[in-house]
Design a protein around this nucleic acid. Structure first.
Lengths: 224, 224
DNA sequence: GCAAAAGTGTTCCAGATACACCCATGA
DNA sequence: TCATGGGTGTATCTGGAACACTTTTGC
């Protein structure tokens, strides 16, 4: 292959891995081991190697730096490519960013040098680089997708109650929804099916469990 | 700056420049001067140099290879980053793609070695690389944006008739719209304002001219 | 006066919103 | 029996879709 003779920007990938914990949206962060921004929290990310797709590079990096397995995520989707010259103080770095969504994502091994943890998106610490902007971008994208796709399936267990479903919507859209209208509308979308199982949890009526009809991203027939 | 010691993919940018010609959507193509795909039509694109944003690189490349000035376009927006390893037969090339929209975009100088021309998107020749896929992606994005933004302003002159506006929608959405409903709905969006001028054109009633309230991308208050 | 495009209203239906009480359970 | 969260229906309003004729002009 012919290499360009001039100097190219460095190509990187960063991942915004989101999940719901205690009915709040959390994002995966690592603590930077080196300068710049040493000690600060940042999105997991790293260099792309020729022959690796950006998606594959991200999987490798998430596994190495954040101890998180991409296979466990239900959706990974490319977000945007951030390329401002000043975003990395070391030099021009172009970063392809991804959003990953999952349920009960857990660290597979021992505590790691990068100290990965999930942090609530409404309580973020100061972040390295332009990573706060990238997380906001991911959150916005997710908010939009909640309105016209079944993306929420990626954040819930296989079986869930309507209350859980509504709570996921409320956590991500950051506003309260009317229970009766929510149920009526969602059931009219033909996206979920009731099972014969019930979830018992404390001194109150048990909740019926539902399943998604498809476990991959699809658009609603109509808007949500 | 510390360069990575491994080999990185080549970073490129490609532009999907769209405009309406004779009420049909056209895309800017150039003819490849070199292998691979020599002689075939392709999107204008090229290498990104460190210190240039992808947006700036695109402006340079469009000017050099396609004789088109980015300043004349009303909107340029990043689309997606294509990165499959096999998309370039010479080796791994990651391409950041943009969509540019304008009105009466014209070549500034003499016919060029790259033979740039605007081709109707529904009559594309066979294209180099994955460029047909990229154009389809841009068209899809544009279709969506027509429904919830004023993006159509970028494809029309400053003053336009409602018939022109509707024709732009029909060309891009690829379906017929009802004239009365279209006008009623668009006027209710508070996005355009009538002027006192009329457009006379042949043996029929003249058409009132309208202007966009804002000449930058904005979301409709409600859906279209 | 005729050909051609501009312009205009009403009816009907579906989906959105607002809103309050009974049900099933465990302690 | 009581505290807790699960589950349900109606009335109203708004926006979307379907649909055909009159107006203004140039020739």
């Amino acid at each position: 292959m012919v290499l360009p003779t001039y100097q190219a920007p460095v190509l990187m990938v960063d991942g915004v891995v989101l999940q719901l914990i205690d009915e709040r949206l959390h994002v995966l962060l690592i603590q930077r081991a080196n300068e710049p921004f040493r000690g600060m929290y940042a999105l997991p990310g790293g260099y792309i190697v020729a022959g690796e797709t950006t998606h594959f590079s991200l999987a490798r990096i998430l596994s190495q730096k954040a101890d998180i397995c991409v296979e466990k995520m239900a959706i990974i989707e490319q977000l945007y490519t951030f390329d401002t010259v000043a975003r990395d103080p070391r030099g021009h770095a172009v970063s392809v960013t991804y959003m990953g969504l999952g349920y009960q994502l857990a660290f597979t091994g021992q505590p790691d040098a990068h100290n990965p943890r999930f942090v609530a998106v409404d309580e973020l610490p100061e972040l390295a680089y332009d990573h706060a902007e990238i997380i906001a971008y991911a959150h916005d994208r997710l908010k939009s997708k909640m309105n016209y796709t079944n993306v929420v399936f990626a954040l819930l267990p296989k079986r869930f109650t309507l209350t859980q479903l509504q709570s996921a919507y409320e956590a991500i859209l950051q506003r309260q929804l009317d229970k009766r209208n929510f149920r009526k509308k969602f059931l009219s979308l033909d996206t979920i099916t009731p099972t014969n199982e019930y979830f018992r949890d404390g001194a109150h009526r048990p909740a019926q469990l539902y399943e998604f009809n498809v476990q991959r991203l699809a658009n609603f027939a109509k808007d949500f």
